[in-house]
Design a binder for these strands. Sequence first.
DNA 1: TTGACATATTCCTATATGGGTATACGATTC
DNA 2: GAATCGTATACCCATATAGGAATATGTCAA
Lengths: 113, 113
Amino acid sequence: MARAATTADAFNAVAEPRRRQILDVLAGGERAVNDLVGVLGLAQPQVSKHLRVLREVGAVDVRDEGRQRLYRLNGQALKPIHDWVKDYERTWAERFDQLDAVLEDLKRKEQDA
Amino acid sequence: MARAATTADAFNAVAEPRRRQILDVLAGGERAVNDLVGVLGLAQPQVSKHLRVLREVGAVDVRDEGRQRLYRLNGQALKPIHDWVKDYERTWAERFDQLDAVLEDLKRKEQDA
DNA sequence: TTGACATATTCCTATATGGGTATACGATTC
DNA sequence: GAATCGTATACCCATATAGGAATATGTCAA
């Protein structure tokens, strides 16, 4: 079997750096395809193809405006990624250990009261 | 050009569901390869291959223990993913709008004082 | 209608899988 | 040293790219 399709889910769609870049640009607001071509320095067909992938996983929405197509971010599609990775935050953030300590402290005081 | 190698970075490594599953299991503590084989229901070579990818992006560390090899999580490698995706959290979390409102309020009160 | 502009799709190619199976390698036990 | 256990690697195959180039599609202007 080959690798999973990039359109299979947000994880695969976002594994490509160019697509993350596109989302980063769209985070600043709606953009036409040509704008993205200019910003990314990619050929137009490639940009359209990346946008298609992002569309298929729901990470972007499109709107027709004359002969342009305006794309905009739909961050909701990235929530599964955030949900998955946030549980690992404690493995590198010492703050969490400190937070744990504080919570322990509060719990103790509550019992004493 | 083909798709980027899964060993190129954490984003690509984690795009494969099985590998996320492996990390999830390792989050519970160090495990031998055979343990993972049992939990995941995959053939041993496949598990070894996935572990190799995770090793190459630094998401897991290995330790020899007799004839076993014990793998353990190294969440630090996932930090870039978290750092990237967390900026999008505001696009789906209404809480942030509310937080913004609170901050605005505080700022205003501070000026009045 | 004709032409220019904006975008999407098609075709081609090199490459990197991910799973299945067989096998090599290293450590342990007999 | 031989048999065995635990893992890693090699090899094969079907599949899905991602980029490049050419072209199709759709819209607006003259």
